[in-house]
């Protein structure tokens, strides 16, 4: 099943074009990895999927992004609802300077998802459990989130993202600030999360893309050069640019 369909997407920062005619289908309940050299437009593309580019004044987006067959670039799109459905995790763990509990309950509060304290407690607990963090933090839910280790903070951000039950989770280099063990924990988590969410991850690690994803797209200078099953991209890509990049023959 196709969850997201990008069609002929162009993105400009002022006069400078950052993405050229991108068309890409994203499969539901699978992990899609986006790879490519720095500045090729991966983050820009990711931000198209939850209209985060709206907040950048000079940024303009053309083309269609269909999520569940609805064009999110349409005027009638409710951006707040959209961001509830499409969660995002960033490169640097960015917990709010609040308690662990407040970090996770923030979204559900805004979206009015709990009718009682008990319901909110449940949402917080399930989210932390799904983010594989519950065991480590259940006795200090009211301590500040910033007191956690880097890997724990990133899992807290994932708990925060999933607390509003998004259909899609966007991850922009979520492990680049983490050590190998914390990275493995996030990768294991991604594998679990894909059962309930569609995941798109930008990563600089080819090995990580190969390990966590079922589909891979390779961007270069604002173009989507090649996309396909991860297996195919890493064993036998069609395009020489893709091959040069993943085998370390680039420039």
């Amino acid at each position: 099943m196709i969850k997201i369909k990008a069609k002929d997407v162009d993105v400009f920062y002022g006069k400078k074009q950052a993405l050229f005619n991108i068309s890409l289908d994203i499969e539901e309940n699978q992990v899609t990895a986006l790879i490519g050299p720095s500045g090729c437009g991966k983050s820009t593309f990711l931000r198209c999927l939850n209209r985060m580019n709206d907040v950048i004044d000079i940024c303009s987006v053309k083309g269609k992004i269909l999520i569940n067959d609805f064009n999110i670039n349409d005027k009638s799109c409710d951006v707040v609802r959209l961001r509830e459905k499409i969660g995002m995790v960033f490169q640097k763990p960015n917990p709010f300077p609040k308690t662990l509990y407040e970090n996770v309950s923030y979204g559900p509060t805004i979206h009015g998802m709990a009718q009682s304290k008990q319901e909110m407690d449940e949402i917080v607990e399930t989210s932390l459990k799904k983010a594989a963090l519950w065991k480590e933090v259940k006795d200090r839910l009211h301590e500040p989130g910033t007191g956690l280790s880097g890997g724990q903070q990133q899992r807290l951000c994932i708990a925060r993202a999933i607390s509003v039950r998004p259909e899609v989770i966007l991850m922009d280099e979520p492990c680049s600030a983490l050590d190998p063990i914390a990275t493995a924990q996030i990768e294991e988590l991604i594998d679990e999360l894909k059962k309930e969410h569609t995941i798109i991850i930008v990563t600089h690690s080819m090995a990580q893309a190969a390990r966590v994803s079922q589909h891979t797209g390779f961007f270069h200078l604002g173009q989507l050069i090649e996309h396909g099953s991860t297996d195919k991209i890493f064993k036998n890509p069609d395009n020489t640019k893709t091959q040069d990049y993943i085998t370390g023959r680039f420039g």
């Binding site: 080819m206 890493f234 064993k235 993943i246 085998t247």
Partner: peptide
């Protein structure tokens, strides 16, 4: 080296 693609083959 964790070879990929043509290098893996």
């Amino acid at each position: 080296r964790q070879p990929m693609a043509i290098d893996l083959r």
